[in-house]
Structures are given as C-alpha cells and as structure tokens.
C-alpha cells in the first residue's frame, strides 16, 4: 500500500534537510508552500522553509502561502517522492500552481537536485 501524502511530504522535507547543498541553496529562501490534493474533503498541508530548513505543518502557519500547489493526491505523492518529474503533470494541466515563477523554479530545482530529471 502506498504512503499517504503527509508521510510523503515528511520524507521530502527530511531528504531536503539532509542534503547540505539544498540547505545552503535555500538559506535565503524563506517561504510558505501550501500543498492541496484535489478532492471533496481536501485540506492543505504546509511546507515552511526557514533558513534552509523545511518543516511540514498540518495547520496554516500564520503567514500567507507564497506558493500554492494543487493536484490529485496520487500526482502529489509521485512528485514529492521522486517517482515523477513535476514537469509532466504540469504540462498535462494536472499540477496547478499559483505564486511567483522564481518560487516555482526553486521548487522544481529542489526536485531536480534530489532525484535528477
């Protein structure tokens, strides 16, 4: 049975935090990312980056989200576990984002550095 989204995102944060290159790259990237799976009872999960360290939150962390990511849950699980490049569902219109292109590029680069393309 596949992991639920929360466990996948926990794993994603852990991998980012254990990668010294990523921690260094994200040192000046203090952002809040809201991740929402599409569905009737979907509530967002929040990844907060502070001084290069990522933490997962079940409730809104207080600050408004800088970047919003929305997709079906199976797509989010695949993207944040490295099974799927984010570009493919993005170019199919399954993965939708809202925020600045700089932040979107940063998230894309994080997945690229973790898992290659």
């Amino acid at each position: 049975m596949s992991q639920n989204l929360e466990a996948v995102l926990e794993g994603f944060c852990l991998q980012c935090n254990q990668n010294s290159r990523l921690r260094d790259m994200n040192r000046d990237w203090d952002r809040v990312v809201a991740i929402t799976s599409q569905g009737e009872h979907a509530t967002p999960l929040w990844i907060v980056c502070r001084q290069g360290e990522l933490t997962l939150h079940r409730h809104a962390p207080g600050d408004e989200a800088d970047l919003e990511v929305e997709a079906p849950e199976e797509v989010l699980r695949a993207v944040f576990s490295g099974q799927l490049s984010p570009t493919e569902p993005y170019n199919r219109g399954e993965l939708m984002v809202r925020g600045s292109s700089d932040d979107l590029m940063r998230l894309d680069i994080i997945t690229l550095l973790l898992w290659g393309d």
């Binding site: 170019n91 199919r92 219109g93 939708m96």
Partner: peptide, 18 residues
Amino acid sequence: LYPTAAAIRVWIGRGWND
C-alpha cells in the same frame, strides 16, 4: 480554465492531443 505558464502546451494537450 488552466492558468498555467505552460499555457497553449496544456490547452492543446487537453483539448486536442499531446
């Protein structure tokens, strides 16, 4: 309908074919 930077790449893919 699809507010994305991929724009026509997504619209044509969904409305016609990839």
